[in-house]
Protein backbone atom coordinates (compact mmCIF):
# COMPACT_ATOMS: atom_id res chain seq x y z
CA UNK A 1 0.00 0.00 0.00
CA UNK A 2 1.56 3.29 -1.08
CA UNK A 3 1.91 6.09 1.47
CA UNK A 4 3.61 8.67 -0.68
CA UNK A 5 2.96 9.49 -4.29
CA UNK A 6 5.01 12.06 -6.18
CA UNK A 7 3.66 13.19 -9.53
CA UNK A 8 5.77 15.11 -12.03
CA UNK A 9 7.48 17.31 -9.47
CA UNK A 10 9.59 20.13 -10.89
CA UNK A 11 11.39 22.85 -9.00
CA UNK A 12 12.86 25.73 -10.94
CA UNK A 13 15.02 28.42 -9.36
CA UNK A 14 15.75 31.80 -10.96
CA UNK A 15 14.37 33.41 -14.09
CA UNK A 16 15.34 33.70 -17.75
CA UNK A 17 18.97 32.87 -18.44
CA UNK A 18 19.64 32.19 -14.76
CA UNK A 19 16.92 29.55 -14.60
CA UNK A 20 18.04 26.28 -12.99
CA UNK A 21 15.88 23.17 -12.71
CA UNK A 22 16.68 21.59 -9.34
CA UNK A 23 14.07 18.89 -10.01
CA UNK A 24 12.82 17.98 -13.43
CA UNK A 25 9.57 16.08 -13.70
CA UNK A 26 10.25 13.60 -10.90
CA UNK A 27 7.66 10.92 -10.16
CA UNK A 28 7.74 7.91 -7.88
CA UNK A 29 5.77 6.26 -5.11
CA UNK A 30 6.82 5.00 -1.68
CA UNK A 31 4.92 2.20 0.04
CA UNK A 32 4.17 2.41 3.73
CA UNK A 33 7.03 1.23 5.95
CA UNK A 34 9.70 1.38 3.26
CA UNK A 35 13.18 2.72 4.03
CA UNK A 36 14.31 4.62 0.97
CA UNK A 37 17.71 6.17 0.29
CA UNK A 38 18.09 9.01 -2.18
CA UNK A 39 21.62 9.39 -3.42
CA UNK A 40 23.32 11.59 -5.98
CA UNK A 41 26.13 14.08 -6.41
CA UNK A 42 26.10 17.54 -4.85
CA UNK A 43 23.57 19.86 -6.44
CA UNK A 44 21.62 16.98 -8.00
CA UNK A 45 18.39 18.06 -6.23
CA UNK A 46 18.29 15.54 -3.35
CA UNK A 47 17.75 18.11 -0.59
CA UNK A 48 15.22 20.02 -2.69
CA UNK A 49 13.27 16.79 -3.12
CA UNK A 50 13.37 16.15 0.62
CA UNK A 51 12.17 19.66 1.44
CA UNK A 52 9.32 19.32 -1.02
CA UNK A 53 8.31 15.98 0.46
CA UNK A 54 8.45 17.47 3.94
CA UNK A 55 6.15 20.40 3.09
CA UNK A 56 8.98 22.89 3.62
CA UNK A 57 9.34 24.06 0.02
CA UNK A 58 6.61 24.28 -2.60
CA UNK A 59 7.28 22.68 -6.02
CA UNK A 60 7.07 24.82 -9.17
CA UNK A 61 4.80 22.16 -10.66
CA UNK A 62 3.58 18.66 -9.85
CA UNK A 63 1.85 17.14 -6.85
CA UNK A 64 2.79 15.33 -3.66
CA UNK A 65 0.21 13.01 -2.10
CA UNK A 66 0.58 11.62 1.40
CA UNK A 67 -2.17 9.18 2.25
CA UNK A 68 -3.93 10.36 -0.93
CA UNK A 69 -3.93 13.97 0.33
CA UNK A 70 -2.33 16.63 -1.86
CA UNK A 71 -0.13 18.35 0.67
CA UNK A 72 0.40 21.49 -1.41
CA UNK A 73 -3.32 22.06 -1.67
CA UNK A 74 -3.02 23.14 1.95
CA UNK A 75 -2.52 26.74 3.10
CA UNK A 76 0.58 27.75 5.06
CA UNK A 77 -1.02 27.14 8.41
CA UNK A 78 -2.28 23.66 7.53
CA UNK A 79 1.11 22.89 6.00
CA UNK A 80 2.80 23.78 9.32
CA UNK A 81 0.40 21.48 11.14
CA UNK A 82 1.14 18.79 8.54
CA UNK A 83 4.87 19.13 9.26
CA UNK A 84 4.17 18.97 12.96
CA UNK A 85 1.98 15.84 12.89
CA UNK A 86 2.72 13.80 9.80
CA UNK A 87 6.39 14.32 9.07
CA UNK A 88 9.58 14.07 11.10
CA UNK A 89 12.53 16.04 9.74
CA UNK A 90 16.15 15.24 10.58
CA UNK A 91 18.90 17.60 9.44
CA UNK A 92 22.63 17.17 9.03
CA UNK A 93 23.23 20.12 11.40
CA UNK A 94 20.47 19.03 13.81
CA UNK A 95 18.69 22.43 13.92
CA UNK A 96 17.91 22.17 17.60
CA UNK A 97 16.57 25.11 19.56
CA UNK A 98 19.48 26.32 21.69
CA UNK A 99 17.40 27.54 24.63
CA UNK A 100 15.52 24.27 25.05
CA UNK A 101 16.86 21.18 26.82
CA UNK A 102 17.17 17.84 25.05
CA UNK A 103 13.83 16.70 26.45
CA UNK A 104 12.10 19.98 25.55
CA UNK A 105 13.51 19.84 22.01
CA UNK A 106 12.16 16.31 21.59
CA UNK A 107 8.69 17.19 22.82
CA UNK A 108 8.54 20.57 21.02
CA UNK A 109 6.28 19.52 18.08
CA UNK A 110 3.78 18.00 20.49
CA UNK A 111 3.86 21.03 22.78
CA UNK A 112 3.33 23.25 19.74
CA UNK A 113 0.33 21.12 18.95
CA UNK A 114 -1.12 21.91 22.36
CA UNK A 115 -0.92 18.27 23.41
CA UNK A 116 0.56 16.91 26.59
CA UNK A 117 3.55 14.66 25.92
CA UNK A 118 3.03 11.02 26.88
CA UNK A 119 5.56 10.49 29.66
CA UNK A 120 5.89 6.74 29.19
CA UNK A 121 6.48 7.21 25.47
CA UNK A 122 9.07 9.88 26.20
CA UNK A 123 10.89 7.65 28.67
CA UNK A 124 10.96 4.78 26.14
CA UNK A 125 12.30 7.09 23.47
CA UNK A 126 14.94 8.62 25.72
CA UNK A 127 15.99 5.13 26.67
CA UNK A 128 16.18 4.08 23.05
CA UNK A 129 18.18 7.20 22.17
CA UNK A 130 20.41 6.73 25.22
CA UNK A 131 19.66 10.27 26.29
CA UNK A 132 18.19 9.62 29.73
CA UNK A 133 21.15 11.12 31.55
CA UNK A 134 21.31 14.03 29.12
CA UNK A 135 17.64 14.95 29.05
CA UNK A 136 18.16 18.24 30.91
CA UNK A 137 21.18 19.31 28.93
CA UNK A 138 21.10 22.17 26.46
CA UNK A 139 22.24 21.50 22.86
CA UNK A 140 25.50 23.34 23.56
CA UNK A 141 26.25 20.80 26.29
CA UNK A 142 25.80 17.78 23.99
CA UNK A 143 28.15 16.11 21.53
CA UNK A 144 27.34 16.02 17.80
CA UNK A 145 26.09 12.44 18.02
CA UNK A 146 23.91 13.24 21.01
CA UNK A 147 22.48 16.30 19.27
CA UNK A 148 21.62 14.19 16.25
CA UNK A 149 19.91 11.68 18.55
CA UNK A 150 17.86 14.54 20.03
CA UNK A 151 16.97 15.60 16.50
CA UNK A 152 15.88 12.00 15.72
CA UNK A 153 13.90 11.94 18.96
CA UNK A 154 12.11 15.12 17.91
CA UNK A 155 11.27 13.54 14.53
CA UNK A 156 10.04 10.29 16.11
CA UNK A 157 8.19 11.57 19.14
CA UNK A 158 4.90 12.46 17.44
CA UNK A 159 5.01 9.06 15.65
CA UNK A 160 4.65 10.61 12.19
CA UNK A 161 3.91 8.44 9.19
CA UNK A 162 7.05 9.55 7.42
CA UNK A 163 10.58 10.43 8.56
CA UNK A 164 12.75 12.52 6.24
CA UNK A 165 16.46 12.68 7.01
CA UNK A 166 18.86 14.99 5.18
CA UNK A 167 22.39 13.59 5.49
CA UNK A 168 21.71 12.51 9.10
CA UNK A 169 25.23 11.16 9.52
CA UNK A 170 27.02 13.75 7.37
CA UNK A 171 28.39 15.57 10.36
CA UNK A 172 29.28 12.54 12.48
CA UNK A 173 32.17 10.09 12.85
CA UNK A 174 31.78 6.46 11.76
CA UNK A 175 30.87 5.15 15.23
CA UNK A 176 28.16 7.75 15.73
CA UNK A 177 27.01 7.25 12.10
CA UNK A 178 26.53 3.55 12.70
CA UNK A 179 24.59 4.22 15.91
CA UNK A 180 22.30 6.74 14.20
CA UNK A 181 21.63 4.42 11.27
CA UNK A 182 20.90 1.64 13.74
CA UNK A 183 18.36 3.86 15.45
CA UNK A 184 16.65 4.82 12.20
CA UNK A 185 16.57 1.20 11.09
CA UNK A 186 15.15 0.18 14.47
CA UNK A 187 12.47 2.84 14.29
CA UNK A 188 11.58 1.74 10.76
CA UNK A 189 11.25 -1.88 11.82
CA UNK A 190 9.68 -1.29 15.25
CA UNK A 191 7.12 1.41 14.39
CA UNK A 192 6.71 0.70 10.67
CA UNK A 193 7.53 4.29 9.81
CA UNK A 194 8.28 5.20 6.24
CA UNK A 195 11.74 6.66 6.00
CA UNK A 196 13.46 8.65 3.26
CA UNK A 197 17.15 9.27 3.80
CA UNK A 198 19.26 11.64 1.69
CA UNK A 199 22.87 10.57 1.71
CA UNK A 200 26.19 10.69 -0.09
CA UNK A 201 27.36 7.58 1.61
CA UNK A 202 26.81 4.39 -0.39
CA UNK A 203 27.21 2.23 2.74
CA UNK A 204 24.34 4.07 4.38
CA UNK A 205 22.23 3.72 1.24
CA UNK A 206 22.88 0.01 1.17
CA UNK A 207 21.29 -0.36 4.59
CA UNK A 208 17.96 0.81 3.11
CA UNK A 209 15.31 -1.19 1.23
CA UNK A 210 15.45 0.90 -1.90
CA UNK A 211 17.84 3.36 -3.52
CA UNK A 212 16.86 6.18 -5.88
CA UNK A 213 19.70 7.91 -7.65
CA UNK A 214 19.19 11.49 -8.80
CA UNK A 215 21.40 13.45 -11.16
CA UNK A 216 20.64 16.93 -12.50
CA UNK A 217 17.17 16.82 -10.98
CA UNK A 218 16.15 13.57 -12.66
CA UNK A 219 15.84 10.03 -11.41
CA UNK A 220 18.40 7.95 -13.24
CA UNK A 221 17.95 4.74 -11.29
CA UNK A 222 15.46 3.27 -8.83
CA UNK A 223 16.29 -0.17 -7.45
CA UNK A 224 15.61 -2.40 -4.47
CA UNK A 225 18.59 -3.47 -2.35
CA UNK A 226 17.06 -6.75 -1.40
CA UNK A 227 17.29 -6.07 2.35
CA UNK A 228 13.56 -6.04 2.80
Amino acid sequence: MELLKIENISKIYGKGENQVAALDNVSFTVPKGQMLAVIGPSGSGKSTLLHILGGVDRPTSGKVFLDDQDIYAKDNNSLAIFRRRQVGLIYQFYNLIPVLTAEENITLPMIMDGRKPDKAHLERLLDLLELKTRRDHLPSQLSGGQQQRVSIGRALFTSPEMILADEPTGNLDSKNSAEIMGLLRHSNREFGQTMIIITHDENIALQCDRIITITDGRIISDKMTGIA
Partner: peptide, 8 residues
Protein backbone atom coordinates in the same frame (compact mmCIF):
# COMPACT_ATOMS: atom_id res chain seq x y z
CA UNK B 1 13.95 25.32 12.22
CA UNK B 2 10.91 25.81 14.42
CA UNK B 3 8.77 26.39 11.37
CA UNK B 4 10.17 23.21 9.86
CA UNK B 5 9.07 21.15 12.82
CA UNK B 6 5.58 22.58 12.62
CA UNK B 7 5.41 26.01 14.15
CA UNK B 8 2.72 28.08 12.45
Amino acid sequence: AMECVGMT
